[in-house]
Design a protein around this nucleic acid. Structure first.
Length: 481
RNA sequence: GGCGCUGUAGCCAAGUGGUAAGGCAGAGGUCUGCAAAACCUCCACCGGCGGUUCGAGUCCGCCCAGCGCCUCCA
């Protein structure tokens, strides 16, 4: 099945065709590691994780490169001001590199809980200073960059294609650069490739232009080219990076004579209570905090329930809804696995055909610009048919097919089921809890056999209060968290 | 000021011009000792006003509301 994706540069859906048949090179702009990851990072990471997973499902071999920005870059003004990591380092009284490491591993941990696959390569900006310097030298040699007072700037006027990705004309742009810095530039819209390190600046490296540090865009051009080569397939990131970050990346690479990304994908933003999440609005949520009250898998489910190019609204109602909807899918998957243990040898041609149809619907949705909401709808349609069929006899063949659908589509593609399978953490509470639950359920079974409903119900109510749900079925009593 | 996006049921959210996917919540029913789960049924004048069309949520114009980028931001 052909995969179509929305290419930001062409502003339309186009058929995806990798440069090298069977292989896909993907680059995603990663985090600047100076604070805990928040919901916005989660939307971006999950969105492109799903792209990667679906391409893998479709048979491509994907090399997925996502950088770690551990050079601080700048807090406020375009080209001057304090380094974000340095500021945080001062705040926490740690070395800049301690800050970078601390929040990098924190990020890895958060993404792991969201079941985001680790990148094939996770290059760090500070580990690629020579590559960045080399690229800057190429740009100077090509006449598209110039040194000025120890800093190097990209000469925007020398590169007419600057603005093509984002559809901006230079003349329309506001000029926010501080005046003293503007003096170093030929044009106020020129952006820094290399910055002279002032006295006291902590992160600094030797360069042909003196001690300094790389500009904010050059690392992505240098590292994507290094690990994916020229003309790699997909470059992703948040819409807010479209300009100037990605525009600059393209200019840096192409002006130096390197072919760059063939498709550009951008995920939309996220709102909380209808507003963009931001520290100043008081609706800022770190994943760390969120995971204390919402299961990461539920967060992921909520994220894939909206399209990556749509604004995702997150509020308490949405979390609650996602919690219940997710449980419905997961429970159906679990039930299928349970029934598979001693499945009868009967055929269910009607059910099998329906399962196949839902799988097809899922793949059609995903092949159409990774339409995860429609794909999720296909899983719910599947679930209704499966649940309805489970009221009767379902044979091994049909159950296996249903199990495979959940495992591959819900699990491997959408990443909604932890690797341990349908059972997941909730069911695997450890031997002690299992034994204790067995004891409680046995006591309740006794009451029920004696028709001592009051006692049996009291047990159930106390379990409910403790967060355990009891389900009496014809084949016995089940419990779940 | 420039570029761009969004407004679909109480909430979340799809939707390729032919009369609205899916989920949550809600209502009624089946099953159950009662529940839970599951299943069945019900639940939308698609922000407003014009226009194009045999026909518009879907195209065009205007208006209203909200949002993003243009400065670090996912």
């Amino acid at each position: 099945m052909d995969i179509h994706l929305y290419d930001t540069k062409q502003r339309q859906k186009v058929r995806f065709e990798p440069a090298v048949p069977g292989k896909v090179g993907m680059y995603l702009c990663g985090p600047t590691v100076y604070s805990d990851a928040h919901l916005g990072h989660a939307k971006k990471e999950v969105a492109f994780d799903v792209v990667r997973r679906y391409l893998t499902h479709a048979g491509f071999e994907v090399r997925y490169v996502s950088n770690v920005t551990d050079v601080g870059h700048l807090v406020d003004d375009a080209d001057d001001g304090e380094d974000k990591i340095a500021r945080r380092a001062a705040l926490e009284k740690l070395e800049p590199m301690e800050i970078a490491d601390k929040y990098f591993w924190s990020f890895v941990d958060d993404m792991g809980r969201l079941n985001v696959l680790r990148p094939s390569i996770n290059p760090r900006a500070t580990g690629h200073i020579p590559e960045q310097i080399r690229l800057i030298e190429e740009l100077i040699a090509a006449g598209h960059a110039y040194e000025s007072n120890g800093s190097v700037y990209f000469d925007v006027r020398s590169w007419p294609r600057y603005g093509e990705l984002s559809g901006r004309r230079l003349d329309d742009q506001e000029v926010g650069t501080r005046e003293d810095v503007r003096d170093e530039k030929r044009d106020p819209r020129d952006f820094a490739l290399w910055k002279r390190a002032e006295r006291g600046h902590l992160m600094r490296w030797e360069s042909p232009w003196g001690e300094g540090f790389p500009g904010w865009h050059i690392e992505c051009s240098a590292m994507s080219l290094k690990y994916l080569g020229e003309n790699f397939d997909i470059h992703g990131g948040g819409m807010d990076l479209e300009f100037p970050h990605h525009e600059a990346e393209i200019a840096q690479a192409e002006a130096a004579g390197h072919g760059f990304a063939r498709y550009w994908m951008h995920n939309n933003m996220l709102t909380i209570g209808g507003e963009k999440m931001s520290k100043s609005k008081g609706n800022f949520t770190t994943l760390r905090e969120l995971f204390e009250r919402v299961d990461p898998m539920v967060v992921r489910f909520l994220l894939v329930s909206s399209h990556y190019r749509s604004v995702t609204e997150m509020n308490e109602d949405a979390f609650e809804s996602a919690r219940n909807g997710y449980a419905r899918l997961r429970d159906a998957y679990r039930e299928v696995e349970r029934r598979l243990v001693d499945a009868p040898d009967v055929q269910n041609p009607d059910l099998t055909a329906r399962i196949d149809a839902h799988v097809r619907a899922f793949e059609e949705a995903m092949s159409d610009d990774f339409n995860t909401p429609r794909a999720v709808a296909a899983l719910f349609d599947l679930t209704r048919d499966v649940n309805a069929a489970l009221a009767g006899d379902v044979g091994r063949a049909a159950l296996t097919r249903a199990r495979d659908a959940y495992r591959e589509l819900g699990g491997n593609v959408l990443g909604l089921f932890a690797e341990s399978g349908a059972a997941g953490a909730a069911q695997d509470e450890g031997e002690l809890v299992d034994a204790l639950m067995e004891l409680v359920l046995e006591a309740r079974r006794h009451y029920r056999l004696q028709k001592q409903w009051k006692e049996a119900d009291a047990l159930r109510e106390r379990l409910t209060a403790a967060g355990v749900t009891i389900e009496d079925t014809p084949t016995g009593t089940r419990w779940k968290k």
